[in-house]
Amino acid sequence: MDLVRDCLDKQVVDRHGHKMGRVDGIVIEVGDGRQPNVLAIEVGSACQASRLHSRLVKMVKSISKWCGVVNHDPFRLPWSKIVCAEIEVIAGVEAEKTPALAWELWLRKNVIARFPLT
């Protein structure tokens, strides 16, 4: 598998097909004299920020902390729970029980639910 072509930036869905972000980063362990080992994929705004500029990571994390919304940004999904399919990366988890949807759930509860005609 070509990790960049077949995995990085792909849509991540949970076991029910619910969208939970994109593969914003890939965590690889590099040991002495051993083959590099893929440990996890990362999902979240902090990881996205790091791809733009390292200084932005701190800013994004501060905002998340200040809002009290995201505790684990970026959220890491173990490689063992990942299947790279044709269009999407399927994660063997429940999206709503992971921090990947923390912002979505926070906005749903605190903002959208308060709109009229919801």
Partner: peptide, 23 residues
């Protein structure tokens, strides 16, 4: 682009970030 839930056919509550963006 960010990988959120999106579809105009779903109720806004099911896709909070998408709905908030267009608002």
């Amino acid at each position: 682009g960010f990988g959120w839930n999106w579809s105009e056919n779903q109720p806004p509550k099911k896709e909070a970030r998408f709905s908030l963006t267009y608002t």
